[in-house]
């Protein structure tokens, strides 16, 4: 953030951010997981999560945010790509066409019977790529003098 001569006090902004960031992230996860049956999915979920990080960037400075979330966002994007690709490659081992997805109902400890689909793993890839790319763009532009 640009330093001005006038000393500003961001107390209200920063305190509000501390609460709101978690709400936004939880909402983004909600969007992410509900993508199969209702509007939402990896893309909008990823954008919303990076929106939360951008709010942190506005309230604090880049150094603080990097120390809170020490991720290499370029590698995060690459990891997302890799996950998405591997879900496709996985189908090669079952001798079905590339990117064939499967799903099933699994009994989970807390949630009970839950529908799990491998398409979610592909979406997880999309989610990570979107965060990685958005944050790389914002951080790179922010750091350039």
């Amino acid at each position: 953030m640009k330093k001005t001569n006038l000393k500003t006090n961001d107390l209200i902004f920063q305190t509000a951010t501390k609460v709101i960031v978690f709400l936004i992230i939880i909402y983004s996860w909600h969007l992410f997981f509900s993508g199969h049956y209702t509007p939402g999915g990896g893309f909008i979920g990823g954008l919303m999560t990076s929106g939360a990080i951008v709010l942190l960037l506005l309230a604090y400075d880049i150094k603080t945010v990097v120390s809170i979330l020490p991720f290499d966002y370029i590698k995060m994007a690459a990891l997302g790509l890799l996950i998405a690709l591997l879900t496709g490659i996985g189908s090669l081992f079952y001798n079905v066409p590339f990117l064939t997805h499967t799903f099933g109902y699994v009994e989970l400890p807390l949630l009970g019977e839950t529908a799990l689909a491998t398409a979610v793993l592909f979406d997880l890839g999309v989610y990570l790529v979107v965060i990685g790319v958005t944050m790389t763009i914002i951080q790179t532009i922010g750091e350039t003098e």
Partner: peptide, 21 residues
Amino acid sequence: MNNLIILPIVLPLLTGILLIF
């Protein structure tokens, strides 16, 4: 069904990703 012809596409993609790491 023949997964052979996806390989020329998957191979450079996988390599490109690994090269980022």
